[in-house]
Design a protein around this nucleic acid. Structure first.
Lengths: 149, 149
DNA sequence: GTTTCATGTAACTTAGCTAGTTACGAATCG
DNA sequence: CGATTCGTAACTAGCTAAGTTACATGAAAC
């Protein structure tokens, strides 16, 4: 798993889970999909469990399943549960008392607030169901073209 | 200079340059403002020079100055010239051929495109002049309160 | 109840990124 | 010429996050 690909890797995993609603997938299986380690998977999606997006069970036949229907899981929720910030720039003061810095930070924080609002709104309108639909479209296309040939 | 604070540090520097329009500031001076090294400053704002946002001159009396009026320099330009991405998540394929991944990346790239458009639009409406105005407001406030006491 | 399988989590290692540093050449001014 | 300042390459250091190992906990199968 590359750096900064936690969101896409998690979505990848969740689509696979949505496509196998009848059984639990182990972290081992999930790790295989994104070419990484089971422990990394468990660590990465631990936040999703707390958010109720997925459930996990131990022991024989245990593993991971979606916590609710894919059309009730938005990318905004997923992104939030991963605990990542959408905007990477920092606005931590480094020169306390400097008025120039204070002005810069004030403007940047305003922008950040507005930007996060906008991005979250957009992400709220995309659900896991949209992703699985997109996947199935691609899958059917391949099927059709294979059939044609 | 902390990680991820290149944008705010650069803005800090640029406000100082806007406040001293009559002379060139050396990288040594600029580095002092953000508590870092002259070489780091030169490296960081090299892109701004190529974008015409600042100019640099060598030798005696040399240093850095704004390339044009502060109200003609938008944060969008500055951010772009720094070569940083506004959105931190990666959409690099890691499993070529995987249809699930392709669906995820397609949706995420669409979102990124729209998000970058929105953010850039917002940043285009903020200029360096807005920052200096904010700074002066704070400066005058301090002045008034000092006078009152 | 014992065995097996799977998660939960802590602790450590490794890799990559970026700031920081050193060094030196090129340009400019007095 | 000598002082100053940028431009840039090359190296070092430190932080962050992924990867790994290890082991305890819990659940199902037998």
């Amino acid at each position: 798993m590359k750096r900064n690909s936690r969101l896409s890797s998690t979505l990848h995993i969740l689509v696979h889970m949505a496509e196998a609603p009848d059984r639990a997938l182990t972290s081992e299986e999930l790790a295989g999909f994104i070419h990484t380690n089971p422990v990394v998977v468990r660590r990465t999606i631990a936040g999703l469990r707390e958010a109720g997006i997925v459930t996990s069970s131990r022991g024989h036949g245990g593993g991971w399943q979606l916590g609710r229907a894919p059309d009730k899981i938005s990318l905004a929720e997923i992104s939030g549960a991963l605990g990542e910030t959408l905007l990477p720039f920092s606005t931590e003061p480094e020169s306390p008392g400097c008025l120039v810095e204070q002005a810069v930070i004030a403007v940047l924080d305003d922008f950040r607030l507005e930007a996060e609002r906008l991005l979250t709104e957009r992400l709220s309108n995309i659900t896991l169901a949209d992703l699985t639909a997109d996947f199935r479209r691609r899958y059917d296309l391949i099927g059709v073209s294979s059939h044609a040939v």
